[in-house]
Design a protein around this nucleic acid. Sequence first.
RNA 1: GCGCGCUUAGCUCAGUUGGUAGAGCAACGCUUUUACACAGCGAAGGUCGGGGGUCCGAAUCCCUCAGCGCGCACCA
Length: 720
Amino acid sequence: MNEKLLKPYNPKNTEERIYKLWEESGFFNPDVCIEKGITKINAEKFSIVLPPPNVTGNLHTGHALMLVIEDIMVRHARMQGKNTLWLPGTDHAAIATQSKVEKLLEKEGIRKNDLGREEFLKRVEKFAKDSHDTIVNQAKKMGASLDWSREAYTLDETRNVAVKTAFKTMYDDGLIYRGHRIVNWDPKGQTVISDDELVYEEKKGKFYTFKYGPFEIGTARPETKFGDKYVVMHPKDERYKDWKHNQKITLEWINGPIEATIIKDEMIDMEFGTGVMTITPWHSHEDFALAEKYKLDKEQIIDKYGKLLPIAGEFAGMKIADAKEKIVEKLKNKGLLISIDENYINRVATAERTNGIIEPQIMLQWFVDVNKKIASRNNKSLKELMLEPVRDKKIKILPEHFEKVYFNWIENLRDWCISRQIWYGHRIPVWYKENELYCGLEAPEGNGWIQDEDTLDTWFSSGLWTFSTLGWPNKTRDLETYHPTTVIETGHDILFFWIARMILMSQYLLGVVPFENVYLHGMVRTADGKKMSKSLGDKAIDPLHIIAKYGNDAFRMSMIVGNTPGNDLRLNENDIRGYAKFINKVWNASRFVLEQIKDLDINNLQKMDEEDGESDEELKKLLAEISKEMNEYRFSIVAEKLYHYFWHTFADIIIERSKKKILENKNIDSAKAIIFTHLTTLLKALHPFIPFVTEEIWSMLPKENNKQNKNLLMVETWPS
RNA sequence: GCGCGCUUAGCUCAGUUGGUAGAGCAACGCUUUUACACAGCGAAGGUCGGGGGUCCGAAUCCCUCAGCGCGCACCA
């Protein structure tokens, strides 16, 4: 008997060796599978791009879940004989990576401006390269059967060409424009960010009521009130019916008398406060919208470092946090303070990556127009192009209810601000010379052209991912073969950030959907339900630690059984331990079978007796069921059914029965035939779920004469 | 405020055309008869959040209430 079988299954000694076998076989690459006759040249395609992990550090349990679900899909497809591509890559993650490196440099007492753009970028690239190497190693340890020969990076040369081409195409179509709009300015990160990158935090603060001429106005932000010269009320508010729209009044304000104009608009909530407010169009999205509507003046009060401008008079140059109380004090001394509510709960917008408190500002930035009709796309807008394929089921989202969430987001979508004032990322392909502007792939001829300093939102390049990875804008064979991709699998938290942007880009640039199916997994949580975030520190579960302890296959089972799309998963070490027992069960049952069939002529199996024949039929029925369920992405059910069948039918009933027959020397041929065929079939069916242990056992099985070229289980035919 | 989801055995969760409730883990009892003590076998445990409705029949469909969670918007 094989020596390995004398001991319990040892994942630690097995997994690395097996992964190497797979990798060296070349079968992760679909071209090799075709070349070696594993896959037919005209086989149906199955393609999936890996959601590229950010090069900001390690892979976490969320990545592990993603890798496992996708690996199951891919191994299953490959075993079905499909032309199967799983394409890996990493994401430069612009602002996330830059701010991480900035923090690291801070610890050394270095600031990025001291280094300059060139030198700082070198540091970031070094960090990104190290992170990349770690990520690739971890993905391999997790058993992912990715085609490493096609690996891509969102910021490499090929992808840069794709980004520039996309930008230029959109610019030429008038979909990308530069304009003064109100944006979310992050004073800490010194960059603009998109609406989706905001995180709202509830903070207890003060709510002030001031006397504003004949009115009382409320505010949580007295420091912005210097320029407020419009006072707004509802046209139907009886309390203020004597005041007319556009009526001017003179009143005493922070730095002396001002003239204010009355605006009547229905945006006002009559129930809130006194039903009267003043507006600050430069520093509020809603006030900006109102100012646009009535063509009102807009004045900047706060600069991009969070300091007050000369309009603040004696407070100019002060940081807003410091000035606040002093301004209130002054208003109080002037008799204009009416009351302070100390228990006001304010929702403060902060930047996802830097935690900086967002200050809306009017700035000159680049935007994608989501409402403009596009001539080359049947006069549809980007919004419509995003909406249609989901509505028409050309893209199916799993679980289905996320479709409603998606529609809801699109309805509320505003123009997408794509320029960022950071250094790490794709530079905007626009050059300026005096009053001229040039957009192109390369700098224009002639002297004096200066490229735009800004870089693009990281999601601009990730939006191209399904086809930039396949070589677009070149008309490559890969692009033709594998696009649209079959399925995208990712966490539901990036439905808007990423899924929506991919649909936008592919629909607009290629005129097709980027993928046919969207599988959204839930968030991975700790056993007590906490979010597995970085703030947990050491308490967060490290997937590699778990793998070292229980083996990859057990870890995979624990993430699949009982986990359905869209629902959060609580990782519980007890469960993993339980599945490690199952892996051992598979190992031990296989040991028994291997020992019994040593003298069996597997090329000439004898007919089974009646009860074994029935078991054979039962297995066929199970296979038919799970084949259907696999195609419906119901991995939890399939894994559970296989687990049960293996344990409670194959091991408990069929193997036990065979022992009796062998011992009593009755129908031995049938007994050996059934345990052999059952084991080989079950190993194939289980392989996508628990690839390592099944491959290891497979290597010890006798091979049929006519299957010399298929020595790896990973390219055997999925039983159905 | 608008929308979505969840509530099933002590814990974590499955349960897709509505047909007498399932798993893992934990806990309990018995068993070392060799593939497996990283085990086997057995028993126990639930009026499927509350209420109402449709149906011969509802965890599953409809209405309603409650608790929890999430998304979006508003917050002067």
